[in-house]
C-alpha cells in the first residue's frame, strides 16, 4: 500500500442549503497522518465526506491523487459506529468489500488476524463488543488496500482503555501500510498523540483556524511533556481554556 496526496483549496460545501465549509484549505501528503479537531458540529465529518466523494463541493478543488501514479485513489472510511452489516458474519463483512478474486477470503482472514480478531470470523456482529466491532470495521477498511484511510471519530464510543488499544492498532497498521490517514476527533490528546499535523476547524461556516505540526518522533510517550505543551496550544486555538486552580492559561490565537 502506498498513500495519496489530498489537497482541498478554496473548497465550499453546502449541506441542506446552508454553507458548512467555506474557503477551505486542506492538505495531506502521501503516508502522512493528519488529524482534524474542532467544536462539535463544525463540519469535520463533512470534510471527510468531501474527501470520500460522498458529498460534492459547491466550489473549489478537491484532489485525491495516488502517490504511485494510479488514476483513482482508493479511499476507505471508518465511521463512528462500526456499521457492520448485521446479517453477515464478521468474515463476510470484511470480504464483501475486498477486491474480487480467488484469494478474497484469504485476504479477509489475514486482515482480521492483523486487527486481532483471528478466530472470530464466523461470529455475528451482534456478538461483538464495541471495541471488537470497531476493529472489524477497521479490518474492512484495510482489506481494500486503500491509499487513504478516513476515520470519523472512530474511538469515541468505546471506553478509555479500549480506545488506547485501538489507537495503537491503528498506528501499527498505518506504519505498516503507508497509507495517508485523516483522523477526525474531538479528543485533542488523541490528535496530538497520533498525528503528524493537526488542523483546527472553527467558525460557521467553518474554515481552518490553525494548523500545528507535531514533530515528535515515534514511538511517542503519552506522558511526554512536549505533547502536553502542544495539547495546550491546540486547546488554546479552540477557544478560551477553563481556569485551572489559581493559574489562568494564555489565550493564544494564531
Amino acid at each position: 500500500m502506498t498513500g495519496a496526496t489530498i489537497r482541498l483549496s478554496r473548497t465550499c460545501v453546502n449541506l441542506g442549503g446552508h454553507p458548512v465549509l467555506r474557503d477551505l484549505y486542506f492538505e495531506a501528503g502521501p503516508g502522512e497522518f493528519v488529524a482534524v479537531v474542532g467544536p462539535s458540529g463544525v463540519g469535520k465529518s463533512t470534510l471527510l465526506r468531501v474527501i470520500a466523494r460522498l458529498v460534492e463541493p459547491e466550489a473549489g478543488e478537491v484532489v485525491v491523487r495516488p502517490a504511485n501514479g494510479g488514476l483513482q485513489a482508493r479511499v476507505a472510511f471508518v465511521f463512528q459506529e462500526p456499521r457492520l452489516l448485521p446479517w453477515l458474519r464478521v468474515l463476510d463483512n470484511v470480504a464483501i468489500v475486498a477486491p474480487a478474486g480467488p484469494d478474497r477470503m484469504e485476504r479477509a482472514r489475514r486482515v482480521l488476524a492483523a486487527v486481532g480478531l483471528g478466530g472470530w470470523e464466523r461470529a455475528w456482529p451482534r456478538q461483538l463488543s464495541g471495541g471488537m466491532a470497531q476493529r472489524a470495521a477497521l479490518a474492512r477498511a484495510l482489506v481494500t488496500e486503500p491509499h487513504v484511510l478516513l476515520l470519523d471519530e472512530p474511538f469515541s464510543a468505546v471506553d478509555a482503555l479500549t480506545r488506547m488499544r485501538l489507537q495503537e492498532h491503528v498506528l501499527g497498521l498505518w506504519a505498516e501500510g503507508g497509507f495517508t490517514a485523516v483522523l477526525v476527533t474531538h479528543d485533542v490528546d488523541e490528535a496530538v498523540y497520533l498525528a503528524d499535523r493537526v488542523y483546527v476547524l472553527m467558525g460557521r461556516p467553518a474554515t481552518v483556524a490553525a494548523e500545528f505540526s507535531v514533530r515528535l518522533p515515534r514511538p511517542r510517550l503519552r506522558e511526554d511533556p512536549a505533547l502536553g505543551r502542544l495539547r495546550r496550544e491546540v486547546l488554546g486555538a479552540l477557544g478560551p481554556v477553563p481556569l485551572t486552580a489559581g493559574r489562568p492559561d494564555g489565550n493564544l490565537l494564531v
Partner: peptide, 11 residues
C-alpha cells in the same frame, strides 16, 4: 441509512 452510507462509501 447509516448502512446504506457505508455501502456507498465502499463504492
Amino acid at each position: 441509512r447509516k448502512l446504506i452510507e457505508v455501502a456507498r462509501a465502499y463504492g
